[in-house]
Nucleic acid binder design. Structure first.
Lengths: 137, 137
DNA sequence: GCAAAATAATACTTTTATGTAGCATATTAT
DNA sequence: ATAATATGCTACATAAAAGTATTATTTTGC
């Protein structure tokens, strides 16, 4: 249920940028706003660029802009890009052969949670967030 | 969504024992049946004993038996005992001040997943499993 | 009593995720 | 041109989770 720190940071960055989705954000500004450590944040930004969510503008006055509309980016896309979604789709007991046809003892219970997770993260888009509170810390 | 290996193993052990909940299981037999590494499994068994789910019977012909009825043990109890449930109850973006009253930008979306997770693991009991398949690997 | 067979405790090793440092490369305002 | 200010890459450092080894303790059958 908990995402990795890397996914958490990636979502934090992109959802922050989504408030004003056409402007450019320098890494420096993101570091100051989001309080994620410099190099780690830069690595995630590079990753998100490679995966096509944002694009980098190098050189003086450079930064990052969305390369794809936030309306086209689901939470699942982001999670999958930075850590892989497979981790969240497997058997809760770790059995590789577990499936609807060949269920483990916890399958019927767990599938409810997993389906809710997958349907939610697949449907949720960066364009549809509540920007009343933008936490900084 | 994914549990830690330790939680996964704890659930694997207890759900295995729940098939025949009054018998005694030696660590040796559990190792052979569940293919969890010897020392790691023993540590989890010791943990589960201390937390009162099972009790150990020492000495020759010893082993482990349920100390509490499987009907009284929810998935949440097990997860909480071995790794703490707090990890699964916090803000998806890691904001400590995030709450229904003071939501982060992803709160409304994520709360659906979290509530489903929590209600499921709180309600599910070790006594109500489908024992058609017991995987060994 | 004592050997056998079990659990218990402690400390160590390995692996993975997270975080950091330093240098290389790219672009543009001047 | 070039200095300034960005991003990009590679390798290293730290922390936490996972897994292992060793030795101690407990109980029972004989």
């Amino acid at each position: 249920m908990i995402l990795s720190n890397t996914s958490e940071y990636a979502l934090r960055i992109l959802s922050f940028m989504a408030k004003d989705p056409s402007r450019m954000y320098s890494a420096k500004y993101l570091i100051e706003s989001l309080h994620i450590s410099d190099k780690y944040l830069r690595r995630i930004l590079t990753d998100l660029s490679k995966k096509g969510f944002i694009k980098s503008i190098q050189g003086r006055d450079g930064g990052y802009v969305f390369d794809k509309s936030p309306a086209q980016i689901s939470f699942a896309d982001v999670i999958d890009a930075v850590e892989g979604i497979e981790k969240y789709t497997g058997c809760v007991l770790g059995f590789k052969q577990c499936s609807d046809e060949n269920p483990c003892v916890l399958h019927a219970t767990w599938i409810q949670v997993r389906e809710k997770f997958l349907s939610t993260v697949n449907q949720a888009r960066l364009s549809d967030l509540n920007f009343e509170n933008i936490y900084k810390y």
